[in-house]
Write a protein that binds this DNA or RNA. Structure first.
Lengths: 300, 300
DNA sequence: TTCGTCCTGTTACAAATATAACAGAATTCT
DNA sequence: AGAATTCTGTTATATTTGTAACAGGACGAA
């Protein structure tokens, strides 16, 4: 067991905020208490200023758990805890500078974390603004359509996204195949491809020749292509029924797939809702199988 | 004593803040009530969040005066007044990235894309707010340290993240190994692990037994562990030198790794800067090799 | 001045809130 | 696998906290 003390973000006067104190103690807390702690930090400090019972309820823990944790934090009781919270709030409001102009508080705005996050949020905003929701729904419907075989294709970097989508669609429906365009074996998979099969292809720069070849062949066989690419658009997009282009520029030597990941996850969420009963059924079966393998921990 | 009136700073949704309401009513109030009103506005909203009696005391009015004025303001009672104050505070604190903004224009705000994006942005904000930048830098330094072997471990779902980090660190430095905890072969890799080796482990719920076992063995051999987990924290975190917990809840049957992806990409960006000359050199070599394989398209 | 109205504070009561004690689960250790 | 320990929730009690009713006091009008 390792207990380290995080020399936390301090307030102006050098005294730790309650949020910091919670954070520091986090390792010494029990499950329910940790759950509670997160709930408090979730909308800090408002949550802590209500009645104890309300806090317990939103955190899904019992009333005494709150009382106990507050004492563990070094307060005499909940009221004292609240009093200090209010004091803190008072101090914060009177000194309304800074606060929240950076993402990672306590880091300068030039820190990688802040710069990078800024860029990604910006990417998300631009990407989403350009997406046609109807096309998106249409694509989701295609992916959800169990009557048509689904192929998911990724390249060197985009393999990550493809695999992630595959992992989930595999749970959602039968008849899904994951193809790595970097593998020499990919032509094998195309043998069975026919008209109306659905391809989800990921291709971000640098666009891969293999992926393009694969797309061409699939297209030639009448398959419908859904493409996830970047703002400059992979050449595959000429063959694609529907394309989504995400912004991927970040202050780094590489591009960011975080935005595309967001799209993929949204698509997964949408697909699972198309036929929720069926999805639920398949997920339960999977749970059962996992239970039998004892792969996961049963509790916490 | 309070002198000026902030011309109705309204909330985003057009509803008046409580401060505004007090202000508007100010003329209809009696002496004691006005005295109280000023006291409330003095350090708003903290003062109103304490017990009624405390507020009465600092304002030098009697307890019932407070109760009466609160009712005059249109609240059923003091508790209701407090509840609304807290709601207001919550909204204010959460405001930095205006919530209401629909991301995918043209789609209703209830559309999956908007809902999901909202959640992810929210996750990012909360996650970043809780990260200690110093620990982050420290972790990056460990990953960048070429004198120590680096192992990257992922489970069933988190495999995606692990692989992505591996793909990039492999370019950045020698001596990186990717281990899938879902593979039975993982113990083989631990044979050579010694003190000071660095492990980056990904474990989000449902936490995997294999990953924990692997972490324990690595820890027993003296390796240093950097953990990426979710807000509930994988049990591995007890063994970890440094942990990062990302929020992963989204409106979906699954969790979202988008936030963790952001962290991973930030880390990659940071690591590449630790020794940029070296990084650049390795990247150029890689370019050359890619050129020779003709894997990528030369233009576009 | 005297009456009446309105305001304000003191007291008493009711409701809620927090704490303490206990017992049942769960987890860890042997 | 069983015992001990730790954690967690339920119940019961004490305290705080808010509200209602009452009575004294200030101010204005006649």
């Amino acid at each position: 067991m390792l207990f380290f003390i995080q020399a936390g973000a301090c307030m102006t006067d050098g005294i730790l905020t309650i949020a910091d104190r919670i954070h520091n103690k986090l390792d010494n807390l029990t499950r329910a208490e940790r759950q509670l702690a997160h709930s408090i930090l979730e909308n800090y400090p408002a949550s802590g200023l209500g009645p104890l019972a309300a806090l317990a309820k939103v955190a899904n823990v019992s009333v005494p758990t709150v009382a106990r944790m507050v004492q563990k934090l070094g307060f005499k009781g909940y009221p004292e805890f609240q009093t200090e919270l209010r004091e803190e709030l008072k101090a914060t409001v009177q000194n309304p500078i800074a606060k929240h102009d950076t993402w990672a508080e306590g880091a300068p705005s030039g820190h990688v974390l802040n710069q990078f996050t800024d860029a990604v949020i910006d990417n998300i905003r631009h990407t989403l603004a350009q997406i046609d929701p109807d096309k998106f729904d249409e694509a989701c419907a295609m992916v959800a359509d169990q009557s048509k075989p689904l192929y998911i294709v990724g390249g060197r970097v985009s393999h990550t996204l493809a695999e992630y989508l595959f992992l989930h669609t595999q749970v959602l429906r039968p008849n899904v195949t994951h193809i790595q365009s970097t593998s020499n074996a990919w032509p094998h998979y195309l043998l069975d491809v026919g008209p109306n099969d659905v391809f989800v292809i990921f291709d971000v720069r640098r666009y891969e020749n293999n992926t393009l070849k694969l797309a061409e062949m699939a297209h030639a066989r009448g398959a419908k292509i859904i493409l996830f690419t970047d703002q400059w658009r992979s050449p595959v997009h000429q063959l694609a029924e529907i394309s989504f282009s995400g912004r991927i520029v970040v202050p780094s030597a590489w591009d960011s797939v975080a935005t595309l990941m967001l799209l993929v996850e949204s698509m997964i969420a949408a697909v699972q809702n198309v036929d929720w009963d069926d999805t639920k059924d398949r997920m339960e079966q999977l749970e059962d199988m996992f239970d039998q393998t004892k792969l996961f921990r049963k509790f916490t």
